[in-house]
């Protein structure tokens, strides 16, 4: 199986099928990250599509020294944050996400299998968006603090503070939710 770097190289030589392989390899991860940052399936789908488009057009700027997945996921996080800014204000968006519990199962409902994950996702949406992006890139995607800092264009110390605050907030909210 060709490595990501080899596929990128082939893509830059004009082999479009190589990019298709990259998409097939990472489309679920890109969508998942977008969904967890934005909290809506349709918005996540748009953001994922935009991220792939941007990845394709910026492929010549990709530095093979870093893993392709890291580059792609950082790019996805930035696209999501931009999409978020372009949409409504944080408060309105959070309220909408919190109220979004229709009686019939939505796409989000069907995607989630377990109550715990649903709770966690809902609580994630209560975090400020930059903290949320930092938490997801660090814990969920396994990026390092320096990579997260570069992706979000902030100092490493800020990322550490966000991670601390986010984890503490989630701990408190989970305790309230679970009644412990």
């Amino acid at each position: 199986m060709a490595s990501d770097a080899q596929l990128v190289e082939r893509c830059l030589r004009g082999e479009t099928t190589a990019f298709d392989t990259l998409v097939a390899r990472y489309r679920d991860r890109v969508f998942s990250l977008a969904f967890r940052i934005l909290g809506e399936a349709s918005a996540a789908e748009d953001a994922a599509q935009e991220a792939w488009l941007r990845a394709y057009t910026r492929l010549p700027m990709y530095d093979p020294a870093q893993p392709f997945s890291t580059w792609l996921l950082c790019l996805t996080a930035r696209v999501c944050l931009n999409a978020r800014r372009a949409r409504q204000t944080e408060q309105h968006y959070t309220e909408r996400a919190a109220k979004a519990q229709p009686p019939t199962p939505t796409l989000e409902e069907r995607i989630y299998e377990r109550e715990r994950q649903r709770t966690l996702q809902r609580l994630l949406l209560r975090l400020p968006v930059l903290q949320r992006a930092a938490v997801l890139l660090y814990y969920y995607e396994g990026l390092s603090v320096s990579e997260v800092a570069r992706a979000l264009d902030v100092p490493e110390g800020t990322v550490k503070t966000w991670l601390y605050r986010a984890r503490e907030s989630l701990r408190q909210w989970l305790q309230e939710e679970l009644g412990e």
Binding site: D28, F31, S32
Partner: peptide, 16 residues
């Protein structure tokens, strides 16, 4: 909390 975040499942992307 950290483990729960790490264990969040990867969601299947919808068909284009």
């Amino acid at each position: 909390v950290a483990n729960a975040l790490r264990e969040l499942p990867t969601l299947p992307a919808p068909m284009p």
